[in-house]
Amino acid sequence: MQNHYNYVFDVITNTYNFVTKNSILYRIAFVVDETFSTLSGEEIPNVYQLIVEKANDELEPYDAKVSKTIEDIIEKFFGRIENSLIYICSDDNQKSKQRHDIFDRWYNKSIYKENILKLDNIIHIDIGMPHPQTLYTSMMFHKDNLNSKKLISIYKQIENALNEDK
């Protein structure tokens, strides 16, 4: 039996959608991200920021098929080895570390670990919110990605820049 929900790409919203057994609609967006191109001054294509969100604020009981569905989408995403993914754990409710730890545990247990590399950076930032934000960011890409050396180099540079004042 299939362990995830069926999902479809909605051409109206430009998101991948699925509905759970509790009738909760999830939307998954891939945002074209040019951060690496901007910071490096070179064109680094096929980099996307992953955003997963419920369409409304209803609370949903734990449903294992939700994470399995997201996992399936990520697996298909890396079916194209040129794709790279940025995932930022939001700091709303100051839960970014908790979210990052869940994501990290999932990655460490996953079968993708063999082929998909994950690099992490923690960024402390004050952007005028009620409290300074701590962002847990992850970058994932296929080990055979032709841009992998560039991606690692830029990521290291970002890390170095963030450690400048330490």
């Binding site: 945002v31 955003i51 969100e53 419920k54 940025i86 962002l135 960011t137 180099s153 540079q157 970002i158």
Partner: peptide, 28 residues
């Protein structure tokens, strides 16, 4: 390449702003 800290922080701020805008979009 020599990336400056302020450039990284500016990019990170932009990414967060984009993420919040998309979350808001998803919620209609």
């Amino acid at each position: 390449l020599k990336i400056k800290k302020e450039e990284v922080l500016k990019s990170a701020s932009q990414m967060i702003a984009d993420k919040e805008a998309v979350r808001s979009y998803i919620k209609g």
